[in-house]
Design a protein around this nucleic acid. Structure first.
Lengths: 129, 129
DNA sequence: ATTATTGTACTATATTAATGATACAATAAA
DNA sequence: TTTATTGTATCATTAATATAGTACAATAAT
């Protein structure tokens, strides 16, 4: 799976967001062991130092924890994960609506545009929890 | 009016986006004269070089043009502005839906969450064209 | 004609992000 | 016990971004 990192924003930030997404979406489950820093770095085609920086930040926020020399693990605090999911969803929505508003597109038009685009979208949600 | 620039992404990029928004939303009209580089820089609390870089890029894409020593002006090509508006709106929507999908939130839930947040929002669109 | 304003160009410097390389202590695996 | 793997720390280098300061040519304003 490619990591799709671009050069628009700091890479370590994009890595943080990507792993957060993987935890929240359930790709990583609570208690799961993460691949090692070196493995993840190679998988993402990134320098180990950059991966380490991202993981340290995820650790600081409590989303993952490390057991020295054993490896890194996803938190078992499901409440924390659920809260983060709600919070991120809310942020995404408000930021999106704000941007559409700045474009001068009123809410009703935004809604109809979304519906329009959703119809032409073949996204499959069937394999999700 | 504050420019609300953050340090997450390059400032000159945020300036480009901000001015694009102001053109698309109609705050700046086709043919309008822009404040000088130095004025804009002061208004945004940014170094003139940074503002110049953003304006050069807006010029490269054709959204503004400069008449040497007279000043800088918004393009009169309304079609170009309309096209950009549609394009940006579409990009905002697809990126938003993609992010919600990555969070593991299905489309139906996304729609109801939007409606929920819209109700608690007192945004006023009445002074728009 | 003179002055001020305009866009533009250039050099230098500081900071941050990313990479590359290396090393070490703790411990799981052999 | 020995080896390999783990997270972690450090140093040097490069590139991009932003700032600061200065300067110049064209021209609008006086």
């Amino acid at each position: 799976m490619p990591w799709n990192l671009d050069s628009d924003r700091p890479i370590f930030i994009q890595i943080i967001e990507k792993i957060q997404m993987d935890i929240i979406s359930g790709l990583y489950r609570p208690g799961d062991k993460l691949p090692s820093v070196r493995e993840l770095a190679q998988e993402a085609s990134v320098n180990p130092n950059t991966m380490q920086k991202a993981l340290s930040e995820l650790e600081r926020t409590g989303l993952v924890y490390s057991q020295r020399t054993s490896g890194r693990y996803i938190t078992e605090d499901t409440t924390m994960i659920d809260n983060l999911k709600s919070q991120l969803a809310k942020e995404l929505i408000t930021e999106f609506l704000d941007n559409m508003h700045k474009l001068g597109i009123p809410q009703e038009e935004t809604m109809s545009l979304i519906n329009e685009i959703m119809k032409g979208d073949d996204t499959d949600d069937s394999d999700r929890m």
